[in-house]
């Protein structure tokens, strides 16, 4: 029962976040680099993952499913809800089909 409630909480939080994430892109980038990149780099056990690994729709779906480690683990186990919301914003904003016009310099 506890597990089921936790799942519902995660799904509803992240579902709401998907509809209107309102996360912080810059903080999401920080949490992504600090936490996700420890495993998700080339040659590491999670394999390389970047924002450009998925389309915007795919990233949104990923956070609706809210599963990690090939679907075996709740995303909320990886980092707290607020940080996940920021990471989602970062990944969606910079997905492979996102409107990211290049800039001059930084």
């Amino acid at each position: 029962m506890k597990l089921f409630t936790a799942f519902l909480t995660a799904a509803s939080i992240l579902g709401a976040a998907t509809a209107n994430p309102k996360g912080n892109d810059a903080k999401g980038r920080f949490y992504y680099k600090q936490t996700c990149k420890t495993c998700h780099t080339k040659g590491a056990k999670g394999g390389e993952v970047t924002p450009m690994s998925k389309t915007q729709a795919q990233w949104k779906l990923y956070f609706v499913k809210a599963k990690h480690n090939s679907g075996t683990e709740a995303l909320l186990k990886v980092m707290p809800e607020e940080q996940l919301r920021d990471v989602q914003t970062f990944l969606v904003n910079h997905a492979v089909d996102s409107p990211q016009p290049e800039t001059c310099g930084k």
């Binding site: 892109d25 810059a26 920080f30 680099k33 600090q34 409107p99 016009p101 800039t103």
Partner: peptide, 28 residues
């Protein structure tokens, strides 16, 4: 060099980029 960044600004841009030039580079 990683450091936890700041909160997002609360106000919209004064040049109203989203309305006037929605495809333009947001940071510029």
């Amino acid at each position: 060099l990683l450091f936890l960044p700041w909160d997002d600004p609360q106000a919209p841009r004064v040049d109203e980029l989203d309305k006037n030039f929605p495809l333009a580079a947001k940071g510029d």
